[in-house]
Computed example of a mutant assay.
Amino acid sequence: MKQHITTIGFDADDTLWHNEQFFKLTEARFLDILRDYAEPNHLYDRLLDAERRNLGRYGFGIKGFVLSMIETAMDVTSDRVPARILRQIIEAGHEMLEHPVELLPHARTAVEVAAEDHRVVLITKGDLLDQERKLAASGLGDMFDAVEIVSNKTAAVYHDIFTRHGDGAERAMMIGNSMKSDVLPPIEAGGWGVFVPHGDSWALEHAEPPTGHIRFAEIEDLSQIAVILQQVRSQI
């Protein structure tokens, strides 16, 4: 008996709506306001190091990013960073948290197509309040059978989610823009991983694709959801 896919997971940030571009803009703003203290490339590297160190402390999201910027500003100034600069960094974070949600092309249609014959689950990581805000503002909230906001995306996390909200990872597909978080872990859990590239990507989310894996697929954009589902049906 064929084990058809019954559950489809969607990533949120930079899969269904824009996100990373606001981090890039704020990052550029940060490099500019600290230009008198460090060269941009050096400052960028120090910020990335701080983000990497702090993932285990703060998790993913804007608040951790802001704290990493503040830590970097203190480091490059030997703790002499002016209060006005700290205030600018905090204000930049506030603006990110208040930015309107802009859906990516084909996002709504893709979820509708997936929901015709499957359970659909939103699986996103980051700050709980911010992710809830963006989902509510997106207008897509009522389209999902379940929403999971997690601290990290691992094979064990996907196995648990697809067991609770579906028929197990073996009969599930995850769709997202991060090879590291949305593709490799669900494949490791036994499911499908579909990569949807996005122009902006965070350096810490980079990973090599599992080229040749039978449960890996890549699409140009969300308009190809129906095509990839048909292709998968023909293989199982």
Rank of each mutant, 00 (worst) to 15 (best):
K2S: 12
Q3P: 12
G9W: 03
E20L: 01
E20Y: 02
F22Q: 02
T26D: 13
D32H: 14
D32F: 11
L34F: 10
Y37N: 09
L43A: 11
R46V: 09
R46S: 13
R46L: 15
A50G: 05
N54T: 12
G56V: 06
G59W: 02
G61L: 06
G64F: 05
F65T: 01
I70D: 07
I70N: 00
A73Q: 03
M74L: 15
V76P: 11
R80V: 06
R80I: 06
A83M: 15
R84P: 13
R84A: 15
I85P: 12
Q88M: 15
I89L: 14
I90D: 13
L97G: 13
L97V: 06
L97D: 10
H99D: 07
P100Q: 08
P100R: 03
L104R: 10
A107G: 04
E112F: 09
V113I: 15
A115L: 12
E116W: 07
D117V: 05
V120S: 02
V120F: 03
L122M: 12
T124I: 01
G126V: 00
G126A: 03
L128V: 01
R133K: 06
R133N: 01
K134R: 15
A136E: 06
S138A: 00
G139H: 01
L140Y: 02
G141P: 08
E148A: 10
I149P: 05
I149L: 05
A156H: 05
H159G: 08
G168N: 02
R171G: 03
R171Q: 13
G176Q: 00
N177A: 10
S178N: 06
K180V: 02
S181M: 08
V183A: 09
G191Q: 04
F195E: 02
H198K: 04
W202M: 14
A203D: 14
E205K: 00
E208P: 04
P209H: 08
G212E: 03
G212Q: 08
H213F: 09
R215P: 09
A217L: 08
A217Q: 12
E218H: 05
E220H: 13
Q224L: 09
L229I: 15
Q230M: 10
Q235P: 06
I236C: 11
I236F: 08
I236G: 12
